[in-house]
């Protein structure tokens, strides 16, 4: 059976959906990802859906749900690499994915996550910048 791998990269989790997403797979991903976030204490989750050509309303909602759950577990989620056709479909379905961060590719998603989840060492710098 297909499984979507969840890779740990420093304090981020990387999920790359490379297979056709079906409903049970989405449910499974939801379970495993939430478990993994609480297990590793990850600060950010990056979901790469660049290989996903087709979405339906269920998968669209699952993506939104996974992102919302990750946020509850204090991990910023970025959905990256959405295909134009998928974006148009989601909009037509009325699924705007409110509150989900998006980026064009993994590279930009990483940059976004890094700026959204500052490392502990960076914190004094950020404070110093603010007092100036």
């Amino acid at each position: 059976m297909d499984r979507i791998p969840i890779l740990k990269l420093r304090d981020l989790l990387l999920v790359s959906i490379q297979v056709d997403m079906h409903d049970r797979l989405a449910m499974q991903l939801q379970d495993e990802l939430t478990a993994k976030i609480s297990e590793t204490g990850a600060r950010g989750v990056l979901i790469d859906i660049s290989s996903l050509d087709i979405v339906d309303s269920f998968i669209g909602r699952m993506i939104a749900n996974i992102a919302a759950m990750a946020r509850v577990l204090d991990a910023e989620t970025v959905v990256v690499g959405m295909q134009p056709a998928v974006a148009i479909t989601l909009v037509e379905l009325g699924l705007n994915l409110p509150g989900v961060r998006t980026a064009l590719n993994v590279d930009k998603g990483m940059a976004l996550l890094e700026s959204a989840t500052p490392d502990v060492e960076d914190l004094p710098d950020a404070d110093a910048g603010r007092t100036e």
Binding site: V79, P84, A87, I88, V91, E92, N96, T102, L104
Partner: peptide
């Protein structure tokens, strides 16, 4: 708004 949302979904 639809166009804006679709662009946002693509990260722009």
């Amino acid at each position: 708004l639809k166009t804006v949302t679709a662009a946002r979904l693509m990260g722009a």
